[in-house]
Write a protein that binds this DNA or RNA. Structure first.
Length: 260
DNA sequence: ATGCCTGTCTGCGACAGA
């Protein structure tokens, strides 16, 4: 049975973090990396081709952007939740018989138009994932969800009251998605509080371990049966000039047994 | 109470991030 290592990482600019991603690939050799916040129109496809990876990117100028970098052939299914969506935040593909979805869910701060956009985006995501479930399409969705699911996923819940990442309405929308039958892969293996994937650049948040868990992998039922491990890899957050996020990694058995 | 830090843009500070 073939084992796949799949990673999600918000790199906060692929231009600024290219060497970090290349170092991560050479050290970890994952099958698939889903990255978020590319922050530019250009994507360095050739840099990853040299390392034996093909990549598919959805980009826009200065903001957002998601990409899938893969050792295995990628069949792109969709590059947006809505075909008229101007923000580059969604990429759905099929790789080795698995539907793989990479998202950069809107931050939603401050309250107002930005938060309304976040909630609408979450409703659209719910609709899409429900559609996949109704059609028995097994999938793995990973990315920067910009959602702190529970109190134990942040350093001090009081500090996050009223924030778009933690508001009750946000968490309810996240639970509605989970409740179509998905598994939060990280929590299968680690139920401890204070396990984070993001630490702010400011006020020594990393040094104080003042973080939040907002990068997630959610798995459909059959894929959760195939789940072998899920870890947050804190090492890249400690590198020089790091992203403020660190990679979350899952290991799954593939649905198909082939040599791709 | 506020800013703290980092990145992009055609900039010479604003905006976004979370």
């Amino acid at each position: 049975m073939r084992i796949m290592k799949i990673v999600s990482w918000n790199v906060n600019s692929i231009k600024a973090r290219l060497e970090h991603v290349k170092r991560y690939i050479s050290e970890q050799s994952p099958d698939i990396i889903m990255i978020q916040e590319l922050k530019g129109l250009e994507f360095p496809t050739l840099e990853f081709e040299t390392l034996g990876y093909q990549s598919h990117a959805v980009t826009q100028k200065a903001y957002n952007g998601v990409a899938i970098i893969s050792k295995h052939p990628v069949n792109v299914i969709s590059d947006a939740l809505n075909k008229d969506d101007e923000q580059a935040r969604y990429l759905e593909a099929e790789i080795g018989g698995i539907r793989v979805i990479n998202i950069y869910l809107p931050n939603g701060n401050p309250m107002g138009d930005k938060y309304d956009y976040k909630l609408t985006w979450m409703e659209r995501l719910y609709t899409r994932l429900k559609e996949l479930r109704d059609n028995d399409i097994e999938f793995i969705i990973g990315g920067d969800f910009n959602v702190i699911p529970e109190d134990k996923d942040c350093y001090n819940p009081k500090n996050w009251e009223g924030d778009a990442l933690f508001k009750l309405e946000t968490r309810k929308a996240f639970r509605a998605i989970i409740n179509i039958g998905l598994t939060d892969a990280f929590r299968v293996f680690n139920t401890n509080p204070n396990q984070y994937s993001f630490w702010d650049y400011q006020a020594g948040a990393w040094q104080k371990d003042n973080g939040i868990r907002i990068d997630h992998f959610l798995l459909s039922p059959v894929m959760s049966d195939k789940l072998i491990d899920c870890k947050i890899n804190k090492t890249p957050r400690g590198w020089d000039k790091p992203s403020d996020h660190t990679p979350i990694e899952i290991t799954v058995e593939s649905l198909v047994n082939n040599s791709d």
